[in-house]
Design a protein around this nucleic acid. Structure first.
Length: 354
DNA sequence: AAAACGGGGTA
DNA sequence: TACCCAGTTTT
């Protein structure tokens, strides 16, 4: 029995019932694939359902504002996915008459669609014989065939792509690709895989050599850097002040309270005296209160943020906030804006003294 | 070639 | 903690 036959047999009796498996419409497959990049099915599923409900077609998504798309994406992370999703929706709707490309080569030209996603859409929707290589595929192939090349090295990426193409069932790329990913997700798991009941036990190099725990091999990732954020939460006549994050850093185009970044954690005295922007405001010290005594630790894949929220009770909005950088809004309207989870959690706890 | 880019689940 | 998740883009 060939590798792909065993795999597909396993899949046909073990696959999960997922909404995007009930369709082959490129719009839905594309949407699900973008959402599931570096994201577990369990986490992405509710977002997928809300998006399909809110945007039944690519035209609906194209017509929405980016702010609305980001708001619906809030909490899913990697927000460039949402921005690229919206950009591509507009492109497909307006330039391609709502029709997605039908080939790997053309799909890969879409913003936010890389090698994996182009392969996934081309194979799942059109049965094009191109192999997907995601985290699951790296794990299954490295173990079964005993490949110890680091999966995140240039060499490894090429080698695994070639191996994946070699093992692909070219007549049934759609089912095969989903099968190998599903097998990696449910059976050949990172920790405690079900080797005892594995259909590949006899031929699995890693199992036979006792290397299940070691494979796949991955080069160590970069150090997490610590940053110190100080947010100014203005409270004034039922209003507050927010700003949209610009540039290419984290949370681009999402909203937050006015931010002052410091080299290290600062006390109230240090905060009020040493920061230029605050001096500009000239707020009396008694009007400033620290919301959280200990900094809130917010950990991202490559950053550790230590965050303090400074609440400023003002009789009126300072003129320093009346620039293009800031927006003065009614407090109750803050829930309409897309914000990082960190900010959302704060808003839930803080009732703006009502 | 390496770093940037989120948030949550698992052991 | 440390690692991982249906990866892509930028530096």
């Amino acid at each position: 029995m060939k590798f792909y036959n065993l795999l597909i047999d396993w899949y046909l009796s073990n696959q999960r019932d997922l909404p995007w498996r009930k369709t082959k419409q490129p719009y839905h497959i594309w949407l699900s694939e973008i959402m599931l990049q570096q994201t577990r099915v369990a986490q992405g599923l509710p977002y997928y359902l809300r998006f399909v409900e809110e945007f039944p077609s690519v035209f609906d998504l194209a017509e929405a504002s980016e702010e609305k798309v980001l708001k619906l994406w809030q909490g899913l992370g990697y927000y460039s996915r949402a921005r690229n999703l919206h950009f591509t929706a507009k492109y497909v709707a307006n330039e391609l008459n709502g029709k997605f490309p039908h080939t790997y080569k053309e799909l890969k030209k879409l913003k936010g669609v890389g090698d994996y996603t182009a392969s996934a859409i081309a194979s799942i929707c059109f049965n094009e014989p191109v192999a997907v290589v995601d985290g699951n595929v790296y794990r299954v192939l490295s173990r079964v065939f005993g490949v110890d090349t680091p999966i995140n090295s240039t060499e490894g990426i090429k080698e695994f792509k070639n191996l994946a193409e070699e093992k692909l069932d070219k007549e049934n790329a759609s089912v095969y690709n989903q099968a190998i990913m599903e097998f990696g997700a449910l059976h050949c798991k990172p920790k405690n895989p079900y080797c005892i009941t594995c259909p590949f036990q006899a031929e699995c190099v890693a199992f036979q050599q006792g290397k299940i725990e070691e494979l796949p091999i991955k080069l160590k990732k970069t150090k997490v850097k610590t940053k110190h954020f100080n947010y100014l939460v203005v409270v004034s006549e039922g209003k507050t002040v927010i700003q949209q994050r610009r540039g290419n850093g984290i949370w681009k185009n999402l909203y937050q309270f006015p931010l002052i970044e410091t080299e290290k954690e600062v006390s109230k005295t240090q905060f009020l005296k040493e920061e230029n922007f605050l001096q500009l405001l000239s707020v009396p010290a008694e009007k400033v209160n620290l919301f959280n005594k200990k900094p809130i630790k917010h950990v991202l894949s490559h950053r550790k943020l230590m965050v303090k929220f400074w609440v400023m009770d003002l009789p009126e909005i300072s003129s320093a906030f009346k620039t293009k950088e800031f927006e003065v809004i009614q407090q109750e309207n803050i829930r309409l804006y897309p914000v990082p989870v960190l900010i959302e959690k704060f808003i839930e706890q803080f009732y703006f003294n009502k």
